[in-house]
Design a protein around this nucleic acid. Structure first.
Lengths: 196, 196
DNA sequence: ATGAGTCATCCATTATATTGGATGATGCCG
DNA sequence: CGGCATCATCCAATATAATGGATGACTCAT
């Protein structure tokens, strides 16, 4: 196996990650070797990026370190979390001029989280529709009705949701919201975007 | 490297995945070998699960197949989506005998979604605490107060949340909930677990 | 100063990953 | 039918992953 132009990058990524994980757990090479059934010497070589571990060794390391195998290729985490709390008074709200619905972003805006939580107040009779578009990420949503009744149409599937009901979906088709009643409704949308 | 009890599983997972990906792209071993700079023979061995490829080989395969390295370990996709809607009446609720709080699982139970949505009704003065424990996944949460006031203590950080406020966190420390008021509170917990 | 313990790296050996050429099976065409 | 092309697997040689013991650096206690 001749050295490849990218060899140093994947082995170096693994090296940095294993060092990081071992340090976090306060383990010596010996202790980790016992925990995962890979020799001290091999772990040392891996941590210095001087070898390219096989899949079996990777899996053993992951198991011994208590992480998913895929995460051994992850870059180190960034620092300095932002404010984890968003106060209602500071939450950004936006009213759609066409339908009159009010959309409030509930989640703290600067905090690194895969979760986006949105509260929507939806007038009687209101209707709004979105094309989904092609995405590089998988967008998962759950729509939870807090008050009133709405209809959600995903592609050709229509769901009528009463207070407390919840619809889970992956956003891969056009989606439309409708309040078919004479009273306003309120609902929460939980949005999580994941790489495919 | 003696054969490990789990050796066949990771190598077999990779084998199935590479075969699947190559077939989808209609490539011969020769064509794939040229695309990714790994020998035909080696790809054949990998696809039959007869070897454990190193990280450098894995990365080359991923690049040549146009997928993320981590996805080479993926199991084949499951089928048959479940009911995407959960009705309030069918949602499982559970009352904690010690503190009296009521916990309702809002999310549709069988639908494959990374999101878990839970509604909690929390009596006046109630207090509940959890140790976080070591985890193989990163658990992200957002706690949104729907009614009343609660205090959430994450490790040594205490947050007082009023109606409409939202706290985002990663669950990596002990966490405690407290209702310091004379009125009941209600809050939603959005939980997303991601592989590390 | 000396001895013991801990830790990471070096060293020589073994195991196996990785390769390019050879081989056998299959299908197509004249 | 024979010849050719394509394809996956076999084979022997080379490269390197993976190991356990040895070694050197460092810290601490006497």
């Amino acid at each position: 196996m001749p050295p490849a132009p990218d060899a140093s990058s994947v082995n170096d990524r693994i090296a940095a990650r294993v060092r990081e994980l071992r340090a976090e757990r306060g383990l010596s090479l010996e202790a980790l070797a016992e925990a995962c059934g890979v020799s001290r010497s091999m772990i040392s070589l891996i941590e210095r990026g001087e070898t390219s571990p096989t899949a079996v060794v990777l899996e053993r390391l992951a198991t011994g370190l208590g992480v998913m195998l895929a995460s051994l290729f992850d870059a180190p985490a960034a620092a300095a979390p932002a404010d984890p709390v968003s106060r209602r008074a500071a939450q950004q709200a936006w009213r759609d001029p066409a339908s009159g619905y009010l959309r409030r972003n509930v989640s703290p805006p600067g905090f690194p989280s895969p979760i986006q939580l949105v509260e929507v107040s939806f007038p009687a009779g209101a209707r709004v529709a979105y094309e989904s578009g092609a995405r590089q990420t998988a967008t998962h949503q759950q729509i939870w009705v807090l008050q009133g009744t709405i209809e959600v149409t995903l592609g050709k599937e229509r769901h009528r949701l009463a207070t407390g009901d919840c619809l889970a979906l992956e956003l891969d088709r056009p989606i439309a919201y409708h309040n078919p009643t004479a009273k306003p409704a309120r609902y929460a949308v939980v949005i999580v975007s994941l790489p495919r």
